[in-house]
Design a protein around this nucleic acid. Sequence first.
DNA 1: GAAATCTAGCTAACGCTGTTAAAGTTACAA
DNA 2: TTGTAACTTTAACAGCGTTAGCTAGATTTC
Lengths: 213, 213
Amino acid sequence: MSAKSQQDRRREQRTQVRRAILDSTEDVLLDGGYEAFSIRRLVDRCGYTAPTVYHHFGDKAGLLDALLAERYAKFARTLKRLQHPDDAVEHLRAVAKAFVRFGIRHPDHYQLLFMPRAPDHAPPAVADEMRVQLDQAWSQLWEAGRLRSGGPESAAQSLWSLCHGLISGQIFRPDVTWSKTVTDDSIDALLLGLVSPEAERTPNRSRPAKARA
Amino acid sequence: MSAKSQQDRRREQRTQVRRAILDSTEDVLLDGGYEAFSIRRLVDRCGYTAPTVYHHFGDKAGLLDALLAERYAKFARTLKRLQHPDDAVEHLRAVAKAFVRFGIRHPDHYQLLFMPRAPDHAPPAVADEMRVQLDQAWSQLWEAGRLRSGGPESAAQSLWSLCHGLISGQIFRPDVTWSKTVTDDSIDALLLGLVSPEAERTPNRSRPAKARA
DNA sequence: GAAATCTAGCTAACGCTGTTAAAGTTACAA
DNA sequence: TTGTAACTTTAACAGCGTTAGCTAGATTTC
């Protein structure tokens, strides 16, 4: 029992150190932004030295990935709460808008999660979960014959691209006065253009076929 | 006469040096990509030393801006050739698609022109010309009452965001297998969702009100 | 209990980056 | 000839991500 508890205590200490480093990472990130973040600044803040950080996280990317995995988990939970299991279009609309809002409110996290530093460096695997989730909704619409043109991949990538463009535009061009409705307007418009209303295909029109899509 | 010609010769020498540095910049950029570009690599290639580059271009951003101003001028000329003065929607469609195609074919130039390195660093002023040109088309549609919702700013920023998202997605995620039709599909869909067909507004319904937009 | 092993953290350094101060060189003007 | 201005260089600064090599301490093994 003692041996086991010793191991546990050591593991606990390890996670405590990781916790402290991650918290300082978040601090530095928050008050300097992504561009200003550096290992030097981090170790000045958290008291440890650079090699300790490397010992625990491998390299800078590993450190940021670890931080982002936590943040993404939180975000994924809020996205799960938005599900409209009965209406694929409303599901896509809600997730897309929430996603854009998240990106604009947390530009540093967004950059780390979805804007790879180099073309070959893929973002953390956890960031693809959402895409898979959305792909399901698109397949559903495709099987229901409600995509006006193109396949479900094309539609999924369209919405994905629009969201990314909305976020990075508003992040990187604060000098532009962005329309307050651009996010809602563009997502609504794209869905309107991609998806045909339910009534067009199913002959039974028990429901009034929706004012929106 | 002699004095003047001397001055001219000096100016000519100056532009020659600038030309040589810019050409080497292009070379380094082409075979290493944007990430791998550095002043050191540049001066190794072009024979001059770093302070010479700084003397002529101010700093790294100035050097890249100078290169990009040239490249953008070429690009703007090809865009001008696409104008459909009689049909604002077709004009927007053609310019948007050409723009995305340009971005994907010249990722390094695109990054420099439209992806500022820091949130406060605005892209070169020359890059805004196109936006102004497109804004005119949107105002035209707005005045014709053909925007389904939102104002012309919102619509313009929607299309702009979509284009940017399409390009940066396909640049930075070569691991994803992008749909070959995603650019056309998404631009068509967004325009379809943003702009109502001409017949909807004018009471005379001589045309069947919906082939494309 | 003593020896071997493993872990965590440190100091100091490497090679790279953008940038610049200061000095030397060259060409033209007075 | 002397002065002035532009041009180019050498040498360096401050910062970056990263790592080799060492020490102190805890854990395991004999």
